[in-house]
């Protein structure tokens, strides 16, 4: 076991999978010679050569299409979008081609689309977005977002070995901030399984990605006052682990869904709707949601802090729910 960062964990998973399976290769902007905008693939081109670590032109649609073609021919490409915001340029290739190919032809498209997502570090409207809900509405895609180095490694390995296209969103605010011990030996975290990060009996907070850490902070603070909050980390956004969500809410009777993406039509709506459909008799209070305000992510630090979910907002809503 070594203590590694979230970013290292992603890097290790990629390197180990490339050593294990010669059909795994990487494509993306500046991932080779430069080692990636965030240095996730530093040293890769030296080890695996430029045929397996491909620097592409700045054309998300182009390299996504190329990766889908390679996947159909038996490869397992891992595509890096330099920022998840630019995945919108490849939207048609992902949604209309990769997601539907197996349904249309019975041909699997095992591509992993990695996208550094999320805000909180003054990236402005084009380097801070959380695009997950655009993809969780699309049948044929799996969508994951790890919150810890251990999960970052295990979920990426599972994604690469999956026969379906997987959107792997890595929160860039976690890259170097979160470190922990991660096993050196090979392991996978199954896609579709949530993780209860903190046990509690009074309120369930359902969240994922960087917000897991924010919500755990709130839970710790309120624990000092005697409130026991359960924090469910979804990890996998499509498919959703309904059983874990429903088991928790059945126990606590109250639910708060927190995500960093904008509120309207975000994943919080789906999670809340599922809870209401399936846990109605257990509910003691309305299911609440917290997301970013419905605006582009501002560049101004003051405004960005006001737009994104904060510990203060989460704590206030948690208190409100605890009082029911």
């Amino acid at each position: 076991m070594a203590v590694i960062s979230y970013l290292d964990a992603i890097s290790h998973a990629l390197r180990e999978e490339m050593r294990r399976d010669p059909t795994v290769f990487l494509m993306g902007e500046d991932i080779g010679v430069f080692g990636g905008a965030f240095k996730v693939t530093r040293g890769f081109i030296e080890e695996f050569g430029e045929e397996r670590v491909i620097d592409t032109p700045i054309s998300e649609s182009g390299f996504t299409g190329a990766a889908c073609g390679a996947a159909i021919m038996g490869f397992r490409p891992v595509v890096e979008f330099q920022f998840a915001d630019f995945i919108a340029c490849a939207f048609d290739q992902i949604v209309n081609f990769a997601a539907k190919c197996y349904y249309r032809w019975g041909i699997p498209v095992p591509v992993v689309f990695r996208g550094p997502s999320g805000g909180g570090f003054r990236g402005g409207p084009y380097h801070s977005q959380n695009p997950e809900a655009w993809f969780t509405h699309v049948a044929g895609l799996k969508v994951v977002q790890p919150s810890t180095p251990y999960e970052a490694k295990g979920l990426l390995k599972a994604a690469i070995r999956d026969n379906n296209p997987v959107i792997y969103l890595e929160h860039k605010h976690l890259y170097r901030r979160i470190r922990e011990e991660v096993p050196d030996e090979d392991f996978e975290i199954p896609i579709g399984v949530a993780d209860v990060k903190r046990d509690g009996t009074d309120l369930t907070i359902v969240t994922y990605g960087a917000m897991v850490h924010t919500c755990l902070g709130v839970a710790e603070r309120l624990a000092a006052e005697g409130a026991e909050i359960e924090v469910v980390d979804l990890r996998s956004l499509a498919p959703l682990d309904k059983d874990t969500i429903l088991a928790s809410v059945s126990k606590t009777g109250k639910a708060l869904v927190v995500h960093e993406a904008q509120l309207t039509s975000g994943i919080g709506g789906e999670v809340a709707a599922i809870i209401v459909e399936s846990c109605w008799d257990a509910l003691d209070a309305p299911v609440k949601r917290i997301g970013a305000l419905d605006v582009p992510i501002p560049f101004s630090p003051t405004l960005e802090d006001a737009v994104l979910p904060s510990e203060g907002k989460i704590e206030a809503t948690a208190r409100e729910l605890l009082e029911y």
């Binding site: 975000g266 919080g268 709506g269 789906e270 809340a272 209401v276 459909e277 309305p286 299911v287 949601r289």
Partner: peptide, 18 residues
């Protein structure tokens, strides 16, 4: 999943649960 109905259902629950 994540259709407009999800948004609508959760809005109604937030604003008119009782």
């Amino acid at each position: 999943t994540c259709g407009y109905g999800a948004e609508l259902a959760s809005l109604i629950v937030e604003k008119a649960f009782w």
